[in-house]
Design a protein around this nucleic acid. Structure first.
Lengths: 233, 233
DNA sequence: CAGTGGTCTAGACCACGAA
DNA sequence: TCGTGGTCTAGACCACTGT
């Protein structure tokens, strides 16, 4: 039962993939498209909403609907590798007390002092990822290192890191996240919580990373040469 | 700028969390809610659509809007462990030829013979996950093993498995997926592609798993005791 | 300022589910 | 059958963008 909006979305998707509408180009106005497809504006808008959810179309209020340029894919590599390919990033450092889920994540008492690093990485002018990294304040560097320096610093710790736990989920972005990443509110994000523990069992870092679902994935590679890890439990 | 629909969604969310509407209960009809909030039905429906995207409300056509019972969370454990906690599953086996992304995934020539196992796991009556597992036909068992037996069989292979690669993404479900998992089309899913390679470098299994984003996550644990894996690349 | 999308109204008709 | 949600219409008014 191809509804009217679905059919229009399919047609527009096809017109984009065949180059009838090119990347970066502005689509005809919603009123024009509605006339051309002989539907009302709400119907046409719901068709565009589908394409928005796929990350194929970007709406700019007051300006128009644009075909999104194909963006470089971003691959998060799990297992202790660099969290995000080296990109330009803006950093904001904040001191705060542990609240919400943070005490449980970092295994510290509530209200204990933390330092938050808020990273927004960019590829050119396009925001690519959003990361909030929490570190117990006594372990926090006083300057604002780039993410990759941050990890190098963690690797230098005594005692060294012993375990990294990464938990991934899929959800819709919060309003704040969709603004920061400049994505539609209906475009799913890949959400990653990474907790790094040192050999003393202390949590040295908890990172909450949000990646846009249309161009990001996370890759984990496990070697089983010694049969460890295989289990049918 | 709290729009009308957002405000209504917030109010309904609050009414659910405070127990004013209980789990499993049917909400008043959309027409009644629209009257109570003094908005038109499309506006009210857009509020419900937000809650649907969070997995908080389930719409059943012809019957009403229901508060979803809190479902058991499902945790996929990565790195070669059992793909999905042991649940009841329905299996369908199909023989087909490699097409689309499959030749590249399995590293076999196009149109080479494969066997597809389609698993739908259930927790009680609720569908929980959808998995399509592709195996080169010469490696496929002739019966339909349960997922956990399947993995045991893979572990018995000569040559044994050497590497498992898992790639995760977030996206909206296809129409087929939202039907099979009985979730709203606006609820993101966690999509997982797992490729298992044996020591001879041959791909013995490619699994495409889809998990509902509102109640599933994937967990990866990396031990760094020997410093391997640390890299600031 | 003109043109665009954002949100909303007050209906209409159809398809589905339960009794 | 009747009440429910699914989809759609044909407008309206406001907010934002660019000139």
């Amino acid at each position: 039962m191809p509804s009217r909006s679905r059919a229009i979305a399919d047609d527009l998707r096809h017109k984009v993939s065949t180059g009838h509408f090119k990347a970066g180009e502005r689509l005809p106005s919603e009123a024009q498209l509605a006339t051309r497809y002989m539907v009302s504006t709400p119907t046409l808008r719901s068709a565009l909403a589908l394409l928005q959810g796929e990350g194929l179309v970007e709406k700019i209020h007051g300006s128009g609907n644009y075909v999104r340029r194909p963006l470089r894919r971003i691959t998060y590599v799990g297992g202790g590798a660099s969290p995000i390919p080296t990109l330009r990033a803006t950093v904001r450092t904040t001191n705060l007390e542990a609240h919400g889920d943070l005490p449980a994540l970092l295994n510290v008492p509530p209200l204990s002092p933390l330092t938050e690093f808020l990273y927004v990485t960019h590829d050119g002018k396009v925001p690519h990822s959003l990361a909030r990294i929490y570190v117990p304040r006594e372990l926090a560097p006083t300057d604002c290192p780039a993410p990759e320096q941050m990890r190098a610093r963690l690797a230098d710790l005594c005692p060294p890191l012993s375990e990294i736990q990464e938990r991934l989920g899929a959800r819709l972005p919060t309003q704040e996240e969709s603004t920061a990443l400049r994505i539609s509110a209906s475009l799913p994000v890949l959400s990653l919580t990474r907790v790094a523990t040192d050999t003393a069992g202390r949590v040295v870092e908890a990172a909450l990373v949000v990646l846009p679902g249309d161009r990001a994935d996370a890759l984990f590679t496990t070697c089983l040469t010694t049969d460890e890890g295989i289990s049918t439990e």
